[in-house]
Design a protein around this nucleic acid. Structure first.
Lengths: 168, 168
DNA sequence: CGCAATTGTTGTCGTCAACAACAATCTTTC
DNA sequence: GAAAGATTGTTGTTGACGACAACAATTGCG
């Protein structure tokens, strides 16, 4: 059993100065996380924060954020998709995709082409400029992925991808 | 270009709507992710979304969100911490922690006690009510963690925690 | 034809991270 | 001991993001 409700002292036994308002323990390394260490969500949240920050920093020169990169990649690999299809595939709101595409279209990376078979929808394509830009983005993204590998290890990254493959 | 195929069609393959012809490919299962499949960040983002939604839903009856839970857990395990110490340990902005604590203090789960040794800082403690409430939260959080286990498998969850331990 | 569903769009709301600035208070340094 | 610098809590702003709701135009189907 992982956590019984008994408040047993955690792994490390930090000196609990039980006194109210006693000295404050500011030493970060000594602060126990208690039940949090058993929660995958906490570790994943911290990891995602780190990984997104590295992505944003690594692609900072081209000003591309993770969500923008995912949209460009999917459109590049599947030209002609509708906004609804991209939104569903990436798990983002179609309302949000509107603003994403507005930004990418303003930057001449993507174009919305009115579909002839369904006048409601737009067929999404990369512009020629967007195609060459995406190639550059992919190189930078690969560099970012190497940072991940250096951080958690090559084998661990592989296992991670395999474990979470069911969410992609 | 890169043809990434062989998507193992997983569980639900409901009903492929016999929509219009070959104009727009709306079939979500057939849309390739291209370079995204090799990016840990994408999988982690999707996973975190799923795991947080399950957490929020599982703890919906008590109206506790992941960040609130993490704050309560750390305070419960380390009474007397300053706000700065909690913020640094959990990796959240101290400005954000202010609002978090305002909310938790209004709900009588946490109390800020003015430190005698450092009149700038507050010593954070759970109230008696907060202590019993946290015990209940932990039971619900354990149920959420079982959902994670059912989703990705027991061994995979263990490996995930081990791989990401360096971020906690 | 008529009605339900879909698509793109606009808007609002709440969460969250990242900064910047500030007053009060400690700490260091001269 | 006083001035200068650092820390703590606080307030505010900005922007990305997810979740909803409503709407017009359009399509599909009974």
């Amino acid at each position: 059993m992982t956590t019984s409700l008994a408040r047993t002292d955690t792994s490390t036994s930090p000196r609990k100065r039980a006194g109210n308002g006693a000295a404050l323990r500011d030493d970060v390394d000594q602060i126990g996380l208690d039940a949090l260490v058993g929660h995958a969500g906490y570790a994943v949240r911290r990891f995602q924060l780190w990984i997104f920050q590295d992505f944003i920093k690594t692609l900072g020169a081209v000003d591309i954020r993770p969500t923008q990169y995912s949209v460009l990649t999917v459109i590049g690999a599947n030209p002609g998709l509708s906004q609804m299809a991209v939104a569903k595939r990436l798990g983002i709101e179609r309302a949000r995709l509107v603003h994403l595409l507005d930004s990418l279209e303003q930057r001449r990376l993507v174009k919305r082409i009115k579909s002839k078979t369904d006048r409601r929808s737009h067929a999404l394509h990369l512009t020629a400029q967007g195609d060459t830009a995406l190639a550059k983005f992919k190189r930078l993204a690969a560099a970012h992925e190497r940072h991940v590998e250096e951080k958690i290890g090559r084998a661990n990254r592989e296992q991670l991808l395999q474990i979470l493959a069911c969410f992609t």
